[in-house]
Design a protein around this nucleic acid. Sequence first.
DNA 1: ATAAATACCTAGCTGTTCTAGGTATTGAGG
DNA 2: CCTCAATACCTAGAACAGCTAGGTATTTAT
Lengths: 111, 111
Amino acid sequence: MAGRKDLMKGNINSLLLCLISQQPMYGYQIMKELEGRSQGYFKFKEGTLYPALHRLEKAGLVTGRWQPFSGGRQRRYYHITEKGRATLAEKTVEWQDFFTAMNLVFKPITP
Amino acid sequence: MAGRKDLMKGNINSLLLCLISQQPMYGYQIMKELEGRSQGYFKFKEGTLYPALHRLEKAGLVTGRWQPFSGGRQRRYYHITEKGRATLAEKTVEWQDFFTAMNLVFKPITP
DNA sequence: ATAAATACCTAGCTGTTCTAGGTATTGAGG
DNA sequence: CCTCAATACCTAGAACAGCTAGGTATTTAT
């Protein structure tokens, strides 16, 4: 029974799903990508990002796969699931509804 | 050191300040007004609204004044302060920045 | 050598929001 | 007359997201 309530708190899930839906990504990459696309606005802390990814995985919206790359350190690539794609579609509509509502209230300030 | 972090969680403060800045209002009236202006989208519970008003008052952004009306029950009208008006201006800019950033990330989904 | 960037993780705090109750008055419907 | 809905305010407690602040380990540039 999610909905507008969750939107108030966390748009992070939506942002993560959106990026991962376009191509599999690993955590650190997502941080940089979000910062780049938003022109420096979104700077998520690791303590915010990684738990969020774990929540998404636990909810079955993404699946993480360890992949070694040249060197030694492993990267955990997250792939979107069907369920994740459906959720993203819902979240997108919810976001649009939300900012429509916000603007309906905020508009009258500067008449 | 507020800022984008707070936006994620609570836009309620912004909405409340916005309404109260236009005219002094009491709690119940604010609930109805928000619901009306947002075409039914915002339906804040009393357990959300009243503590939020108390927080705003404690922060010096609004001042509450008891006023009796025909009948018996008292209404507590909230007036915006100078500090509240300044905060509202900041919050408005923050909101615009936020949804600009959101749209920068969300746009590429449907190319 | 050592600093910075990459790459991942978690325990615990704070603070917002909702749930779920409470009080009290007025007016309408049966 | 009585009860219910609407008006009008309030709070304690739970739930949970996001931040703080720490940790590990590798590679590359200085």
